[in-house]
């Protein structure tokens, strides 16, 4: 923590605030996210309603907080699936090589060659819409990139002489993978974790915008924007605030990713 760059610290703090806000929003919001109040229909931002109210008179701030909760939860879970499954698979096939490696990499290449949105659409065509289905779909689609990343790292690392000398000393293969190699992938993993998180946020927002992701009554930032699109002029705060929150999340994490990469390069 001590010798961290100032810009990295700022990014980390903002990221922490965002995650915290999302967590809170997942369980508690200042107003109910579903209660409608006709008197507050399209009310502009005020001290009571920081981001104003929507066409049903619901508090936008509460809905944004709650939507953030859903978005961040979906993103964390999908990246988690991709990270764990992808890294373990990638490490194992990278270390042992052989036919399984070739086949798996071929499959990953095919999946990665396709536009993400298209793959998610096909997946949703199979699994149907909803919060959990989008998690499965995105989680599955994130596996290949983590497989590729960890495999590449492990191919590089396993040629290192300290791995050879561990083998010479008689350390077992599984121990070598998990205790000698994976700790050295930390910075590469961290960077792809952050990048993956961003992609997940964007993908979830896009899918929910298209009406194929999170379904009501669950709030989602993407869905809010799609509902708000028609009120752009009557109540500009309605689409603008959820949009800005998405931008802030993505911006923070992409800056964080960049800072982490810089740190990695600086050693």
């Amino acid at each position: 923590m001590k010798n961290m760059k100032k810009s990295l610290k700022i990014c980390l703090i903002i990221a922490a605030i965002l995650i915290l806000a999302a967590l809170i929003g997942h369980f508690w919001t200042p107003y109910s996210t579903t209660d409608m109040d006709v008197s507050l229909k399209n009310a502009p931002p005020s001290w009571q309603h920081l981001m104003g109210c929507d066409n049903f008179g619901r508090d936008i701030f509460s809905r944004v907080l709650n939507g953030m909760g859903t978005t961040v939860l979906v993103a964390l879970l999908t990246v988690g699936i991709g990270l764990i499954v992808g890294t373990v698979l990638g490490s194992l096939v990278g270390y042992y090589g052989g036919i399984v490696d070739t086949v798996l990499m071929r499959i990953c290449d095919v999946i990665l060659a396709f536009p993400t949105v298209l793959m998610v659409l096909v997946f949703i065509a199979i699994t149907g819409t909803g919060k959990y289905n989008i998690i499965y779909a995105l989680g599955f689609l994130f596996i290949p990139s983590f497989v590729r990343m960890s495999r590449g790292e492990i191919l590089k690392l396993k040629e290192m002489e300290y791995i050879k000398s561990a083998k010479v000393m008689g350390v077992s293969n599984i121990k070598i993978i998990f205790f000698h190699i994976i700790p050295n992938m930390r910075s590469a993993l961290l960077t792809s974790l952050v990048v993956g998180f961003n992609n997940a946020v964007l993908a979830e927002a896009s899918m929910s915008y298209l009406g194929l992701g999170v379904q009501p009554p669950d709030a989602s930032l993407g869905r809010m924007i799609s509902e708000a699109q028609n009120y752009l002029f009557r109540a500009p705060w309605y689409p603008i605030f959820p949009g800005i929150v998405i931008i802030i999340i993505i911006l923070t994490f992409s800056m964080l990713g960049e800072e982490l990469r810089d740190m990695e390069n600086a050693g």
Partner: peptide, 14 residues
């Protein structure tokens, strides 16, 4: 078991 000392001192330690 015999032990090995490698050329590249930079990559021989984790």
């Amino acid at each position: 078991k015999p032990q090995m000392i490698f050329q590249d001192a930079y990559s021989s330690l984790n």
